[in-house]
Computed example of a mutant assay.
Amino acid sequence: MPAVMWSCGPLNGTGGAEDQPLCQHLHLVLSVFSLLYLVAGVPVGLGYNALLVLVNLHDQSSMTMPDVYFVNMAVAGLVLSALAPVHLLGPTASGWALWGFGSEAHVTLLVLFNVSSLVTMYSTALLSLDCYIERALPRTYMSSVYNTRHVCGFVWGGALLTSFSSLLFYVCSHVAARIVECSKMRDAQAADAIMVFIGYVVPALAVFYALALISRIRKADTPLDQDAGRPDPSVHRLLVATVCTQFGLWTPHYLTLLGHTLLALRGKPVDRHHLGILLFAKDVARFLAFSSSSVVPLLYRYINRNFPSKLRRLIKKMHCGRQSCSPDQAGVQQVMA
């Protein structure tokens, strides 16, 4: 059994002797970063995502449109943080697996991962579009909290329906001998192609379009810039940081899905050397995708101006318990904060 989480097994016997040390060093570095993420990143992701959800749900009257989308992404981040140990240490890794599970559990975890990735990407895209609407038409209330909550409900429903294709391919792989139609759907690469197009290409186009429109508005000096009801400037910084983070960390994952699909379309068996490279790239992409669940709530914590005050109100309510705080107690706690 190898001493690291991922091994160079697929590359053995395919490259020269000079390639083996480099391969071993790369897998060792990836193993160290992954273990550090499991020890530190997963608790941070679970803690900050849960805190983001609790703080906003506790003070729903002060929630804004961006807050609703970040709560949506935080829920998806909680799912990703819970799935990270299973994916990074389980049989989906290309080398050493600490445990194993059946095909049914594997498909269930895959569906949950796909749902979380779709919710994350579409929440980012819709946040960009709504920020443009709110900046261009600040007093029309088209991007209100009420509308955003319903939109997020449709996002989760659409993510579940799209991820259902993974379950459909699994079912067809078991009954293909009896149903001729399912025999044409046995390739998992079709599900990967669907995920690349729906889960990455579509939201990427929406985000680029929204950012281009926002940049045009920011360049134009209009009377709306002096309007007291215009969006908080920190929202734009948070939007840009979130878009760059999400697409920067999720792009490698969708590129590996695209590469797997293109290799399958060649109709030729993949040699061990290319298979090893693909598995290593898949492990790196999976690690980056899971790390987004802990990075985004940290961005929200340190860029959003309203979060500290909401957090103080939540802590004050938890400290007072069921009894309401007196004005003196509240004033003393604010001075101490």
Rank of each mutant, 00 (worst) to 15 (best):
H253E: 11
M73P: 03
H58M: 08
P2H: 14
R322T: 06
V86C: 11
V235R: 05
D271R: 12
S292A: 15
V44Y: 03
L118Y: 12
Y146D: 14
I133P: 00
A50K: 02
W99A: 12
S81T: 06
V171N: 09
S62H: 01
D328P: 03
K268M: 11
M195E: 07
V75M: 05
R313M: 09
S292F: 12
N49P: 08
Q226N: 13
P21V: 02
V201R: 02
W99C: 14
T242Q: 11
L263F: 13
P43M: 06
V295R: 07
D232M: 11
D187F: 02
M73W: 03
A93E: 03
F101C: 06
S166T: 14
L36Q: 04
Y209G: 07
K268H: 15
L249G: 05
P231H: 08
H106P: 05
H150P: 09
R178E: 08
P85Q: 03
V284P: 15
L118R: 09
A84M: 00
R216S: 07
M195C: 07
S326K: 02
V201P: 04
V119N: 01
N304P: 03
C320M: 07
P43C: 06
Y69A: 08
F287L: 10
F101N: 02
Q24C: 04
V202H: 00
G45M: 02
A76N: 03
D328V: 08
A190H: 09
H150E: 09
S81W: 00
Q24T: 05
N72E: 05
S123P: 06
V145N: 14
G47Q: 06
V243G: 05
L167P: 09
M142Q: 14
M121I: 10
Y302D: 08
L160H: 10
I194H: 03
H260C: 14
L36M: 05
S62L: 03
E18L: 08
L26D: 01
A264T: 13
V175L: 11
H260K: 12
N306W: 13
H87S: 04
Y132I: 12
K268W: 15
R218F: 09
A285N: 14
L57Q: 07
A105Q: 10
